[in-house]
Design a protein around this nucleic acid. Structure first.
Lengths: 126, 126
DNA sequence: CCTTGGCGGTATCAAACTGTGACCAACGCT
DNA sequence: AGCGTTGGTCACAGTTTGATACCGCCAAGG
């Protein structure tokens, strides 16, 4: 039992400090990733986002957008027309996050068959 | 950027998006990413994982490991010694997921200052 | 001998989080 | 007049998570 190895994170490449955790806790929730993908091609209005992200409620969309805006990943622009129009758009920082997020989406897309097969086998063997 | 062209070719998004969503809902929960990073260098025992992932409860570690095992992303090996020893390890599929996950971690690590500054500004302006 | 502690969990219950549906005000269309 | 669209907020129900206790087994310390 090498307690020293467990206790000390490797200094060079390890990224799991507490600030990184706070950021990942924001990104890795149920809806943030979908919002990112929905905004990847440019600004989108609130209800357009709601229609695009299947299953999200109005409340959760509002809450998640507020948090992402607080983190500086998206920007909110209100046009005081009637009816009001609100555009949400990725900031520069948000667009830089889009690269690893899309890598995740691509992985999920190309590995869904493997995972579904693993689930079936696991449920049979159970 | 040819990713968008590959990812969303048809207007009927249900066929393409739903399985990807199921996978991402598994990956993008509160603890899975940390388990992946904790396992990146090889097999780790249950309580070693618990110590390494700060703040996770025994219950959530068990549940999350079971789900990841069901999806074929990690493997569970029980050594019937006294005391019992259980090793968790990334499978080949799990290791392929490690690449985009580490890209996310790296992004979070290099952008944490920007995000913390954005939070401070937002909270002041509020 | 007898307490303490580590191992890998399970069971239970409260707290936190998330989803559902109703409601809002202003206006355009018919 | 009545309905729909805009971007939300609020109260309440349902789900998920966390804290704590407990389990059998054994090893080490006093």
């Amino acid at each position: 039992m090498t307690l020293s190895d467990i206790e000390f994170p490797t200094p060079s490449e390890d990224a799991d400090c507490r600030p990184v955790r706070e950021i990942l806790d924001r990104i890795a929730d149920k809806w943030s990733l979908y919002i990112f993908v929905a905004l990847k091609d440019g600004p989108v209005r609130f209800n357009a986002l709601r229609r695009q992200i299947d299953g999200i409620s109005q409340r959760m969309l509002t809450i998640t957008l507020r948090q992402l805006e607080r983190d500086g990943l998206i920007s909110r622009t209100l046009f005081p027309t009637i009816p009001p129009r609100v555009d949400y758009e990725l900031t520069a920082v948000g667009r830089s996050l889009l690269t690893p997020v899309m890598a995740l989406m691509t992985w999920a897309d190309s590995n869904r068959d493997v995972i579904e097969e693993a689930r079936r086998q696991h449920d049979q063997t159970r």
